[in-house]
Design a protein around this nucleic acid. Structure first.
Lengths: 143, 143
DNA sequence: ATGCAAATGAGAACGATTATCATTTGCATC
DNA sequence: GATGCAAATGATAATCGTTCTCATTTGCAT
């Protein structure tokens, strides 16, 4: 493993266990930024690490609750997670290859807040998912 | 049944069958604007109409493909459908009661298009889901 | 080293959705 | 209106992502 950071676990009130360190490390290595539970599970197996699928699900949920990861529900029915680096951003998902690109636009953000509060809601969270076709060069593999 | 409109089915290349008319009519009556497959199934049963759950799923999918309905994937894992009236809008989903409110803001829309095209993507579709707590009065039942 | 609450892992269970397939239906043709 | 057949239906099994259960293992404070 690269450089696991148990402090992150501790500060999140989570015991520093082997499976948790492995999962955290996988995200920190950053080979894939957006991963589903199964992606994580398979990658760990491929890396020769042994973990239970149930544990992967548990750990991902805990990490998301603790704020270490962010959970996204894109179309397709499965949750996708990414490292929470504190900077909110929205996502563009390529309909051809599934590639996920991130973007942030403060004009959209402020406008959102205003519109929603004008309607009398207390905004908790939001997700803006753009589904698009990316350019050929960015889209090598079709799904 | 109120006023089913078989023309809509025909123009969508769908045979005008009883289950399809029942489902379409349910949406057109507009008692509930946003319904999941199970919502539709239960409401039809409650109305004394007999349909198979599998058929409801099939019909909803076909209607969404045909453009009669729009499918939404909110958090919570189940698809929700609404009548497609041609006017795009975004959604606020109450985290307490599941109530769905619609809104449209042209500033957000235009800004979205610009940001995405600047990144070299051809936007196909998008979904903006705001998760919020609605005011007590609007939120009678907790889920 | 010891003890125990917390975490794990294997597998069962679950909820939403889709697939299978024998039966029924819409509808064009006689 | 009767007939035929492809398309649609409905009951059920199957699938998929995810959560639950519970016996076993582990982290960590003593």
């Amino acid at each position: 493993m690269d450089t696991p950071q148990p402090e992150h676990l501790k500060s999140a009130g989570l015991k520093s266990t082997l499976p948790r360190l492995k999962v955290l490390d996988l995200f920190q290595r950053g080979q894939e930024r957006h991963m589903s539970a199964e992606d994580v599970y398979k990658q760990l197996l491929a890396d020769g690490e042994s973990v239970g699928l149930a544990t992967v699900y548990r750990v991902l949920t805990q990490f998301a609750q603790a704020g270490l990861l962010v959970r996204h529900n894109f179309e397709g029915g499965k949750s996708v997670f990414e490292l929470n680096e504190g900077t909110h951003h929205d996502h563009i998902v390529c309909l051809q290859c599934g590639h996920v690109e991130e973007f942030y636009d403060s004009a959209i953000e402020t406008r959102q807040k205003k519109v929603v509060s004008d309607l009398g809601f207390a905004i908790q969270d939001h997700s803006l998912h753009i589904y698009a076709d990316c350019t050929k060069t960015k889209c090598p593999n079709r799904r």
